[in-house]
Design a binder for these strands. Structure first.
Length: 253
DNA sequence: CTGGGGAAGGGGCCC
DNA sequence: GGGGCCCCTTCCCCA
């Protein structure tokens, strides 16, 4: 079953590309084999971006980054577009190679900065993907199609946001893992720093993620949030309820 | 096998 | 319109 109810349902027959196992299968995810980024060539325009502002105060406590990262010109806000495997997952551009030119995959134009290329490539996406399905019939709303998957959106903003899940422009400076949004990267970096800002008031546990704290709080509750419709048993997580149902407690449901 | 923790994903909302 | 944050959800792993 695909993670979540989102885009990847179209690929339910295979592992989602962003799965960590998939990422690790490509990179081993160990410092020695840390995926040095590729040159942004025509075959692999690994578009990556690094924080241009110190959003992670805890970065100062990072245990010796694997390599010093020179921030490139593209901030998080620069939602780029690239080839399918380009900057995806943990195969980002090497910070050591950022001085190279960036090629557009669609028209072979060259750009000296990542942000410029990202901006340019996005124009390809919006024009190429929107035009074929402009409303000509009953539909009064334009459809913005993602070129990477069958997903479509009714607004360009939504499409741009979605495209980030393909381009993964936010790269961890410590391990090189790529994420679609800055706050995802922020949460990931906590796995490096050990920062756990969300503390449980009932015990001494702390969590790096608020949602995980919320799930944990359920364990302190006698009556859990998720209840089986048949046996009235409650569970702290929906996934546990689903497991419970799948195990046969509620064959009718 | 079950429950819980950790990590990560996207949509929605607000500024 | 874009960015940040919140929320919900899922999957993997481990005890």
């Amino acid at each position: 079953m695909p993670r979540s109810f989102l885009v990847k349902k179209y690929f339910s027959n295979k592992k989602p590309y962003y799965k960590e196992s998939h990422l690790e299968s490509q990179t081993a995810f160990v410092p020695e084999s840390f995926p040095r980024a590729e040159l942004p060539t025509q075959h692999s325009s690994a578009l990556t971006c690094y924080p241009t502002k110190p959003i992670f105060s805890s970065l100062d406590t990072l245990p010796a980054p694997l390599s010093p990262v020179t921030p490139v010109s593209s901030p998080f806000s620069s939602s780029g577009e690239e080839e399918e495997d380009g900057g995806r997952s943990s195969n980002p551009s090497s910070p050591d190679t950022i001085q190279h030119t960036y090629h557009c995959l669609h028209c072979s134009k060259r750009y000296s900065s990542l942000s410029a290329l990202s901006h340019h490539q996005l124009s390809h996406c919006t024009t190429l993907q929107q035009t074929p399905s402009l409303p000509t019939e009953a539909s009064a709303r334009p459809a913005f199609h993602c070129k990477h998957c069958p997903k479509e959106y009714t607004s360009l903003g939504a499409l741009k946001m979605h495209i980030r899940s393909h381009t993964l422009p936010c790269v961890c400076p410590t391990c090189g893992k790529a994420f679609s949004r800055p706050w995802l990267l922020r949460g990931h970096i906590r796995t490096h720093t050990g920062e756990r800002p969300f503390a449980c008031q009932h015990c001494n546990r702390a969590f790096a993620d608020r949602s995980n704290l919320r799930a944990h709080l359920q364990t302190h509750s006698e009556v859990k949030k998720y209840q089986c419709g048949s046996c009235s048993r409650t569970f702290s997580r929906m996934s546990l309820l689903h497991k419970h149902n799948a195990s046969g407690c509620c064959p009718a449901s």
